[in-house]
Simulated scan of single mutants.
Amino acid sequence: MSLNNYEQTIMTLVDHDNTQLEVVTMGDSKSDRAVVLIHGAIMTYKIMTVFAKYLHGVRLIFINCPGRGESTELDRMSHSLVDYATRINEALVSIVNDAKIQEMAIIGYSMGGLIATKLAAYNTLPIKHLVYLNSAAKIDFKELRISKLLMELVKDMNSDNQDGMIKSIPELILDQGISKKQQNTFNFTEYFAPVDAMVTDLLYTLRSDYLADLDEIAQMPDVLFLLGEDDVIFPNKDSKETMEKFEALGANVRSVIYPEVGHLDFLRVLDKPHDGELRSIESNINEWLSIEESDVTE
C-alpha cells in the first residue's frame, strides 16, 4: 500500500552550497516508476500526502520546498522560484540515479505546477507525465482579484506583525480561493509553512512566467490539467494558454474543468465524481498515469 515504506531523507545539495532539502518517500520502494508531488505556495509537502492512498504500485516522492521543515530557507531578495526548482532538480536527479528510476510523473499543485514546468525544461529527468492541479506554466497577477490585497500584505510584513500575518494570509486565501457556493471544511492549519516562507512563496509565485520554458523541453510529456472553474489564483485563462502552447508543440494534452470548484476545494472532488458527471481527480490521475485504482481505503 502507498502509505507503507515511509522514509524521510534530508538531502545535502552539493551544487547549492551544501544546503538541505527534505524529501519524504512512500509507496513501492522497488518500483522503477516514480510520482513526484509538489505542493503549492504557503503550504508544506503534507498537503500532497492526501494522494498517497490513491496511487499504488509506484514510488511516491514528496518534497518540502525551501524554508519549511528541514529544507534550508533562501535569502528572499537574492533568489526566485527558479531556485526552488534547481534545488528540487538536483535532489531528484540523485534519487533517479540511486533508485534507477526509469519513468517519472510530476503532479504540481498551484506553485508546484510552475516548478514542474521548470523541471521539465531542464531535460535531466525521465518525465513522462505532467499533471497541473489548479496550476499553469505562468501566473498573471494583474488578472487576479486578490493580487493587490496580497501585495499589500506582503509589503507591510515585518517582525512586529508576523502573528497577524500567519492568520491573515491563510484566511485570505481560504476566503477567496474556494468557491462561493461551497464551504471548505478541511483543516489546513497543520499544512502551513512558516510565515517567512509563505511571504517568499507568494512573492516568487506572483511574478513567475515560465511559458517560454515549454520551448526548451526536448521530449514532450503527456500533460493533464485538472482545474477548478472558480479558481481565482490560477485563472483558467492562464491554464488555457499553457495548454494551447503544449498542444502547438505536439504534446498529448487533456483538460478537466470542475464547475463550482475553486483553488483550494479540489479536495471535494479528489475521490468523488462531480455531480455524477465528471470523474474524480483520483480517477483521472490514475487513468492518465496508467495506474490501477485500488478499492482499499486507509
Rank of each mutant, 00 (worst) to 15 (best):
S2G: 15
N4G: 11
N5Q: 07
N5K: 08
Q8D: 12
Q8A: 14
D17I: 10
D28C: 00
S31Q: 00
V35H: 06
T44N: 04
I47F: 05
I47E: 13
V50Q: 13
A52W: 01
Y54W: 10
L55I: 09
G57S: 05
R68W: 06
E70T: 06
L81C: 06
I88R: 05
L92M: 11
I95W: 02
S110M: 02
M111H: 03
G113R: 01
L114P: 01
I115F: 02
K118I: 05
L119S: 12
F141P: 04
L149F: 03
M151I: 12
N158D: 14
S159A: 13
M165V: 11
L174I: 15
S179P: 02
Q182R: 15
F188Y: 13
A197N: 03
D201L: 00
Y210T: 06
Y210F: 15
A212Q: 14
D213L: 07
D215Y: 12
M220I: 10
P221E: 05
G228E: 00
G228M: 01
E229M: 12
S239Y: 05
K240Q: 11
K240N: 06
R254I: 08
E260Y: 12
E260M: 12
F266N: 09
V269F: 01
H274I: 01
I281W: 02
E287H: 11
E293N: 08
D295N: 13
